[in-house]
Design a protein around this nucleic acid. Structure first.
Lengths: 342, 342
DNA sequence: CGGATTTGTGGAACCGGTTCCCTACCCGGT
DNA sequence: ACCGGGTAGGGAACCGGTTCCACAAATCCG
């Protein structure tokens, strides 16, 4: 393994000049630079990132904390982030944070606190203050993409407004018997994504003077998956008497499950039941699912871009104001929703 | 940021003793160790992994190269690998390798060649010799999980046999008009997963004296996704005259697409069309899909375990023999396949 | 009881870069 | 002819650990 000293010797310069020539910092004569580069090339020199980050403090590596990789939304975010980091010359270290428990503490205390990342992007996770502090106290900025992180900049869609929009769509179609399938864990963090979507639903319902169909609370929890939506759907639609004419599902995956449940029960969609989802899943078009699109891959890209900006200059001076503008969402109407049956 | 010197001073010992106390290597009196640990605790000391790996050459980090994160199979592998690495105290650096192009070279030459990983796990990718060489020539072992990597140890199911098993299942049910929807790119690498599955299909077909339904070659390519299976399915099933009575799809996602296409065309499954998939997708049960299960999460775990073993002792002495035993698969019969209509 | 281990600790070199500081030259301006 | 600033490049310190070596004290063993 050739080191920079070998390159220097071969090129007939000092280590410092070789370093400057290869990194492009400081004054180096063009001719010298070429000579050094050629020497490096010749002996197959590859700089040790460890040595470099030991002295510079930068690792060219960003940690991404994510609760699932195999939910469509998160997978897209991850792909977007990965692509963006790659082209910025950064590595992406993945921390798959299962819901809670001791594993979670380990990620923060053992992995993230160690210095191998320049910044952390937390996707769809609700962090507590201690967790945020563990990261920031080591001088690493943290960005919350969706989810919440007290005291940290946040990038997110306006879940409450978007959920309101979805609900409004159903109301405008004349539905009055509407149910909401919330993602499980809606109650956990007060300002969590789940809680906000439910709140947006309730906003519009009460504004329209309607009372939700379903469990006492008017909200049914479902696992954020297709099977989760399926079993919640069976339960919701199983009693012919008290059946809603429209459902707002907190995710497209839940919505697909409900569609499947309706099919199983012989309930026609959309004529007997309108369904609207949330996410803009890649299968939504094929299944004709009306949904609120968000653009997770783009969100991942954007998160990286934001972090890169921080890492570029100021550093340490993280601009909390960036958190201002909510990310884009769009209502896309397809064939799973229609006017209420009379 | 306190360094180990600060800990040493506070504990009244030398740097070397502090290092030994904290890492547990070498002789340190129990009483001293406690004193050092307490000092470290008190000032919130966290070791710099950069400094450590600079001297030891180990990074406690494994690179995972994967072509997609948002295909079910790959997502599962990734989750399994991540969990296993986490509990081994290793980081996972993700390289999302889009099919080809300059991006791909960049991953190998720029990212993987640099020393920040102790080993590489390549999932479902076909590497060429140069790529394998870039990694191994730097002393890092590489493991191919599925996919191929000339000269590198490989961990994989027996795709050919498993595809044969799937085909056999259809033949035993009395089907004679059978089509195969292969994953796109089947022709690329001669010994690729796709090619092997197709070969397994053809093995059994010709052994039974049957000729496949479909394009001239008897094999139809589909994108390895639900929409891909859908459009291939529409095409395959669109001509009532030349319709197969059974389909072997190269992945469950394709199979779901075909189911959807059949539904659209009013073809009853399984009475008019039997469908078998491949993977053991988490939705297979809900949709009653007969399939060949493999266990991707387990595969990820296994890959990590193998690599950990290499990293444990010998190092550099990678045992090629490990590659021997194919991973587990299992035929799971559900309601999407039945006896051929007479 | 003396030599051979085993145990415990400190000093210093070292991993491989980056960067600070110092010197030297060249060039333009006065 | 002298001075100042821009350009080039060398020497050495430094980042923060780990490890080799030397040495001392404690322990063992016949």
């Amino acid at each position: 393994m050739p080191a920079i000293g070998d390159v220097a010797r071969l090129a007939g310069v000092s280590k410092s000049t070789a370093s400057r020539a290869l990194s492009g910092r400081g004054y180096v004569a063009e001719e010298t630079r070429l000579r050094v580069e050629e020497a490096a090339q010749r002996i197959g020199y590859i700089a040790s990132p460890d040595a470099a980050s030991l002295v510079t403090g930068r690792t060219k590596n960003v940690g991404v904390v994510i609760p699932f990789v195999n939910r469509w939304f998160f997978g897209e975010v991850l792909e977007g982030a990965e692509r963006a980091l790659l082209s910025a010359g950064y590595d992406l270290t993945l921390y798959n944070l299962a819901i809670g428990g001791p594993e979670r503490d380990r990620v923060f205390d053992f992995f993230l606190a160690r210095k191998r990342v320049d910044a952390v992007i937390a996707v769809g996770v609700d962090l507590d203050e201690r967790e945020v502090d563990t990261i920031t106290s080591r001088g690493k900025p943290i960005l919350a993409l969706g989810g919440t992180a007290p005291g940290a900049p946040r990038l997110a869609i306006d879940d409450r407004a978007a959920a309101g929009l979805a609900t409004q769509h159903l109301i405008q179609l004349g539905h009055t018997r509407i149910a909401h399938l919330a993602g499980a864990g809606a109650g956990s963090a007060a300002r969590s994504v789940q809680a906000m979507r439910t709140a947006g639903f309730q906003d519009r319902m009460s504004a329209a003077g309607l009372v939700p169909v379903g469990e006492p609370s008017g909200v049914i929890e479902a696992d954020m998956t297709l099977p989760g939506g399926y079993s919640a759907g069976l339960q919701l639609l199983g009693h012919p008497g008290a059946r809603p004419t429209a459902v707002f599902a907190a995710s497209d995956e839940i919505a697909f499950g409900v569609m499947r449940a309706a099919e199983r029960l012989g309930i026609a969609v959309p004529s007997a039941l309108s369904i609207i989802g949330f996410d803009g899943h890649e299968h939504a078009e094929l299944f004709g699912l009306t949904t609120i699109e968000q653009y997770p891959e783009e969100q991942g890209r954007l998160a990286v871009e934001t972090v890169m900006e921080w890492l570029g200059e100021g550093y340490g001076e993280v601009d909390l104001a960036t958190a201002g503008v909510p990310l884009a969402t769009r209502l896309v109407v397809r064939s799973s929703t229609t006017a209420a049956p009379r």
